[in-house]
Every structure is written in C-alpha cells, then in structure tokens.
C-alpha cells in the first residue's frame, strides 16, 4: 500500500483559539508576512471600531489575499462608517481596489444606504457610474427608484447607460416612461437606443 495515513495535519499545534488583543492584531496587520496580515485582518472583524485602520491598510496593501481578507472583514463589520471609508476607494486609480470596494459595498446594503445620495451627486462621473453599478447589484428595495432618478436627472451618457443596465434586471413598469424620455434625450446614440430598448423589453417581460 503506497497510500499512507498520517497523523491529522497540524494536530500537534496549539488547539485552542489563542486570545489575541485588538492592539496586537492591529500591529499584526502591519506585519511583513502576508499570512499574518491575513489572519489579523480576519480577526479584526470582531472589532468594528477598527474599520478605519483596516481601510488604511487596504489603501497600501499589495497582496490580493490580504486585500480579500480585509474586504471580507469590512463586510462583516458592515457599519455606515466602514461603508463610507470603502466608498472613498471608488476614486482609486487602482482598478482592482476600486472593484473590490464596489463588491464589498454591494454586500452591505444597510450601511450603504446613507451614502447613496452623496455618491450619485459626485462631481466625478466615474464615481457616479460605480455608485450606479453598486445599486444595480445590491439587495436594496429602494435601488430601482434610485436608478430611475439617475436616468431622469443625470446628464452623463455613461452614467445613464449604467443605470439602464441595472434597470434591465430590477426596473419596474412604472419606469418605462422615464426610459422612453431618456431614449429621446439620447436619440441617435446607437448604444443607448439599443440598451433602452433591451431594458424596456425585459421590464415588460415580452
């Protein structure tokens, strides 16, 4: 028999969960070893007040796995403060960080809600697009109405296009008129006409 059964791996290591204080975890978050930062980030989810520190680390963290752990802890903390700090990353030049923050915000509907108005009014059209993308995926009953407001009031074609895309899945029949108005506003734009027709068809269901 070549297959061998070993002792259960790692069973010789200390079994019980080590109680490490919050400050020690915060220190470990700056460790040179990615796996230490990862486990510190994970355990800091138990301390909601560390959300700003987690975000500070996220801003400079290069390891994808540590970033993932930090984002997961921020989702679990799920506070409006954490959401607010995450929303700042929508401005980042780093596409991976930006999209990681968007995905995390999609998972924290209650914490997100208070920030939506501000994000949709941002002077940077890309930030508004990201806000619309978040609203298109989040489980928030008010999301369709927000997207409808975007297509009524935002003048930027790509922001409106993103909202139309979201409405293709979550829009209601009461938004068909807004979509028709939008189509008139962007008459002649191949993509917008196509997208609006597609969304309207999906909302009507036929």
């Amino acid at each position: 028999m070549v297959l061998v059964k070993q002792k259960t791996p790692g069973s010789e290591s200390p079994g019980g969960p080590e109680v490490v204080g919050r400050d020690a975890l915060l220190a470990a978050l700056e460790s040179d070893t990615a796996s230490d930062r990862r486990s510190a980030a994970r355990e800091l989810a138990a301390f909601p007040e560390t959300a700003p520190a987690l975000c500070d680390r996220l801003a400079v963290e290069q390891s994808p796995s540590v970033r993932a752990a930090i984002l997961m802890s921020l989702i679990r903390i799920g506070s409006p403060e954490a959401a607010g700090r995450l929303a700042e990353f929508l401005r980042s030049d780093d596409a991976t960080l930006r999209n990681g923050a968007m995905e995390a915000l999609q998972e924290m509907p209650d914490a997100l809600e208070g920030h939506v108005d501000r994000l949709l009014a941002d002077g940077d059209s890309d930030v508004r697009i990201f806000a619309v993308n978040i609203l298109s995926a989040v489980r928030l009953r008010s999301a369709p109405a927000w997207l409808a407001r975007v297509i009524r009031s935002d003048s930027h074609v790509n922001v409106c296009a993103a909202a139309v895309d979201g409405l293709a899945e979550i829009g209601g029949v009461e938004m068909l008129d807004d979509l028709a108005d939008l189509r008139r506003r962007f008459a002649g734009d191949d993509f917008m006409e196509f997208a609006i027709d597609t969304a309207s068809l999906r909302i009507r269901g036929r």
């Binding site: 028999m1 297959l3 994970r42």
Partner: peptide, 25 residues
C-alpha cells in the same frame, strides 16, 4: 480495509476556522 484505513476522515465545517485550521499545505 487497506483503502478504508488509508483515508483520513474527519469532521469539519468549512466556515469554522478552528476546524479548518489543521488543513495546511
């Protein structure tokens, strides 16, 4: 029996870090 004895069966909940911590390398 040889095969039965060659596999290390154990209980673990994948979302429980204390139970999965021993699966390494």
């Amino acid at each position: 029996d040889d095969l039965r004895e060659s596999i290390d069966f154990s209980m673990a909940n994948v979302v429980d870090r204390t139970q999965t911590g021993r699966f390494r390398d």
